[in-house]
Amino acid sequence: MAIKDQTTLRVVLYEGAGAQPLGAADRFAALTELLERGYTVTRTGTGTVAPADRSTLLVLGRFDEGRVPQAEDAEGQVAVHFEDISGQDTAAIAGRVEWHREQRGAARHGEWKPWFPVIDYDRCTNCMQCLSFCLFGVYGADATGRIEVQTNDNCKTNCPACSRVCPEAAIMFPKYKAGPINGDAVTAADLGRERMKVDISALLGGDVYASLRQRSDDAKVRFSKERDDKKALAERQKCLTKLATAGDIPVEVLMSLPAPDEILRRAGEAKAKAAAALAMNHQTQS
């Protein structure tokens, strides 16, 4: 199941009327533990919090005399469950929340590092270079032909390559180490800097896919003449190392790339998708 189709559990730490407040240290320990486990937690107190939505609510509290409230959503849209945490330490509280998560069939968090591109539409010019470049089908276009991230689960963890090919620095990876890819403001110096304009294809002497095609053809000739697998592998590794260094692309991502022929097939598909999206966008704009 794609992660966007999973349901989630919202935890509420209730410290209002009918419940005893936690000490600040206990509150901090409980919140930290739940956040580390991936839960969304609302702490009630003075002030307002976000309204309820249709997710399942688990309300934790040190309820007076252990009297757990009974409540339900009048409109039947929110399932509400209560758990008395009187006398429970942090580990026990986390254990009870896990139990509720399993009972409700809610998503288990932390099994996937959330690494995916985020488009800055203030900067994006809809040039489709990212769509043309990505071999993993992360990008697509909406009904108006505008670029969008469609399948973020397909993105390769720690690989910022598509942000390197964006001429406007409009692709962010919020968990990247440095700006402007991490979302830091884009400066004129960033845009002018050579590394921002890394054209990965240029590293291979022009169009990356044309170059791969050439390498594929060369390899076929080489194989037919020499049957030298080691030499072909060495050639590929040399090329990939060059890419990894210049584009800050994890070597394991590059090494997991399919064979050159498959890369070419996917690249052809991506280019066709980009061309169709651009045509659609021109049509809707005119």
Binding site: R27, L31, L35, T42, R43, V49, S55, H109, W112, P114
Partner: peptide, 24 residues
């Protein structure tokens, strides 16, 4: 925040929520 007595929402990771298209 925990010491302040204020109400607040805390999320584990906004990126993960965005990836989920979490309605929250």
């Amino acid at each position: 925040l925990c010491e302040s007595g204020a109400a607040f929402d805390a999320v584990a990771d906004l990126c993960e929520m965005a990836a989920r298209r979490d309605p929250a």
